[in-house]
Amino acid sequence: MNDNKKIDNDTRRIISKRIASKIEDKNILYEVEKFHQSTTWQMPYKWTFSKDVLNWESIIEYHDTLPEAELASINMFPTYEVPFSEKCQSTRIYNKKEMISKEIFSNILGKAYGRYRGLGSKNYPSAGGLYPIVPLVLILSNNAVEEVKKGVYVYDSGKYQLKCIKVINQNNIKRIGRNLNSVYPDKMLSNICFAYAIDIEKSVLKYGRRGYRHALIELGLISECLHLAYREQSDIYGDCVWSGFNDNALTVECGLNPYLLPIGLVQWFGLKSV
Rank of each mutant, 00 (worst) to 15 (best):
W268A: 02
S90M: 10
G129M: 03
Y155L: 08
E103R: 11
G120P: 07
S190A: 13
V148P: 01
E147Y: 09
E218H: 07
D235C: 07
P67T: 07
V134R: 14
E24G: 04
Y153S: 00
L109W: 01
S182V: 15
V252C: 08
T48I: 10
Y212C: 07
V266Q: 04
M1Y: 13
F84S: 12
A249F: 08
N248Q: 11
M43S: 11
V241F: 06
D186T: 13
A249V: 08
Y184D: 10
W242D: 05
Q42V: 11
I19A: 10
V148I: 15
K174D: 12
E232Y: 05
I74H: 09
I139A: 00
D8G: 02
V154Q: 04
V137G: 01
K6D: 10
E253C: 06
M188A: 12
I217N: 15
V145I: 15
E24H: 04
L221Y: 13
I93Q: 13
V154M: 08
P262T: 12
K111S: 06
W242I: 11
S73N: 11
D199F: 03
P185Q: 13
C254L: 06
S16N: 12
K202L: 09
I104K: 04
Y30M: 14
K6I: 13
S141F: 01
L29T: 10
L256S: 07
S90P: 09
V32W: 10
K111M: 01
S223F: 06
E98Y: 00
P185V: 12
S58T: 07
K150V: 04
L66V: 15
S243N: 11
N179W: 07
S157G: 07
I139P: 00
K102V: 03
Q42H: 13
L221D: 14
E24S: 10
D239W: 07
I133P: 01
L180Y: 05
V241P: 03
Q170R: 14
Y30R: 15
R213N: 09
V152M: 06
A144K: 02
P185R: 15
K97P: 01
M99S: 01
A215W: 11
K202G: 06
G255Y: 10
K46A: 00
G114L: 01
I217W: 12
I165V: 14
L250D: 02
R13G: 03
A20Y: 10
S203Y: 10
L256V: 07
K17F: 05
I100S: 00
L136R: 04
H36G: 02
L265V: 14
N169A: 06
E68W: 10
N171R: 14
G118Y: 08
S190I: 07
N9F: 09
M1W: 08
R117S: 09
F245Q: 08
E146P: 03
K87F: 06
I14H: 09
R117H: 12
S141W: 01
A215D: 06
K272S: 03
H214M: 05
S234A: 10
Y196V: 04
K96H: 02
R210Y: 09
K26S: 08
E61Y: 13
S203V: 03
N123P: 02
V266P: 02
N9A: 07
P135A: 04
W242T: 09
N171P: 00
N191P: 02
E103T: 09
D25W: 05
K122S: 03
N246L: 10
Y259E: 14
I28Q: 10
